[in-house]
């Protein structure tokens, strides 16, 4: 596998390689948030907080405690999941935008915590993290996560998550323990947030609390909503567009963020449900597959 990676590094331009690696990480992060916000409908605006927990935990474990790469990643994700579980508990009582505010507050507290956290280098950040993450590891994990996510969302549990988003009272009256499932969505989503964070820190070599600020959370939320709430292809597309957009917009140099902001507004005006929000594979098949068959109207 190392040979394969060496080959990839040799033949692909480092600039594109970097974008592809970051895309893989963003997909993992966004799929985690998609589970919480897109699928279960619990607006979270603090996903970068979980990412930073995973990033710092795994980095410190592999630098100072000699954890192997995989173990460090899993431990980082597990710690993030634990905090996701804790944050999931207020969902017992809070609704809608109150919950959003708690997630913002939580992520800010985490950021301030790392700004004052001695082993993490405080505001200076943490450098010298081993660069274990490469194209192969990121995309192997990303594909695995996509596959597991797809399976989950097509299962009984996945349908229950969607049902909570659509109508909580009706969901409860079909026997869904809405409280437990909301906490579960938070826990699983944060696990992926922590995993993405670990991959990120082991790729970047250097991390700093400002990498995981409010704007990062918002960027991840944009990926989920832009692509289409709750849709896996939509989330992947959203990650793709928003990972590439800043790169493409490099030609406009300092006007980059200006265009980025305008792009968000324009996309929402023309595709209010997200780019793939109301597109289903089933409908596409029907539209293209049955062209010659004249079905009579029932």
């Amino acid at each position: 596998m190392n040979g394969l990676d060496a080959a990839i590094t040799q033949y692909i331009d480092p600039y594109y390689l970097r974008i592809m690696i970051l895309l893989g990480i963003n997909i993992i992060l966004a799929l985690g948030l998609n589970l919480i916000t897109g699928v279960t409908g619990q607006l979270s605006m603090g996903h970068a907080g979980f990412m930073s927990i995973g990033a710092y935990t795994s980095a410190i474990l592999s630098m100072q405690f000699g954890f192997s790469y995989l173990m460090a990643l899993l431990a980082g994700a597990a710690v993030a999941a634990f905090f996701g579980f804790l944050i999931g508990i207020p969902t017992l009582r809070l609704e809608g935008d109150y919950l959003a505010m708690v997630t913002i507050g939580f992520a800010e507290i985490i950021r301030v915590f790392f700004l004052n956290f001695e082993p993490g280098g405080k505001a200076v950040g943490l450098s010298g993290i081993p660069q274990h993450t490469n194209f192969i590891t990121v995309w192997l994990i990303a594909l695995l996560i996509i596959a597991l996510n797809t399976r989950l969302l097509k299962s009984r549990m996945g349908r229950a998550f969607y049902a909570i988003r659509e109508n909580e009272i009706a969901a409860a009256s079909t026997g869904i323990d809405t409280t437990r499932l909301k906490i579960l969505a938070f826990t699983a989503g944060s696990f992926l947030g922590g995993l993405g964070g670990g991959l990120y820190s082991h790729y970047m070599y250097y991390i700093n609390p400002q990498d995981f600020g409010f704007m990062k959370s918002i960027e991840l939320l944009n990926m989920v909503i832009l692509g289409g709430m709750g849709s896996i292809p939509g989330t992947i597309l959203g990650s793709f567009i928003l990972t590439l957009a800043p790169e493409m917009l490099r030609i406009v140099a300092e006007y980059r963020l200006l265009f980025y902001g305008a792009l968000l507004v324009i996309l929402m005006i023309f595709r209010p449900n997200g780019i793939l929000g109301d597109v289903r594979i089933y409908d596409l098949k029907k539209r293209w597959g049955r062209k010659e068959v004249k079905t009579c109207q029932s």
Binding site: L152, M157, Y162, A163, E166, N167, A170, A171, T174, G175
Partner: peptide
């Protein structure tokens, strides 16, 4: 109803309480 789910999925969710496959 679960408006943005298919008709079939609406009924499938209905059986949540009597099925048991977990996460």
């Amino acid at each position: 109803l679960f408006n943005k789910l298919s008709v079939l999925d609406n009924v499938r969710v209905g059986s949540h309480g009597i099925s048991r496959s977990g996460f």
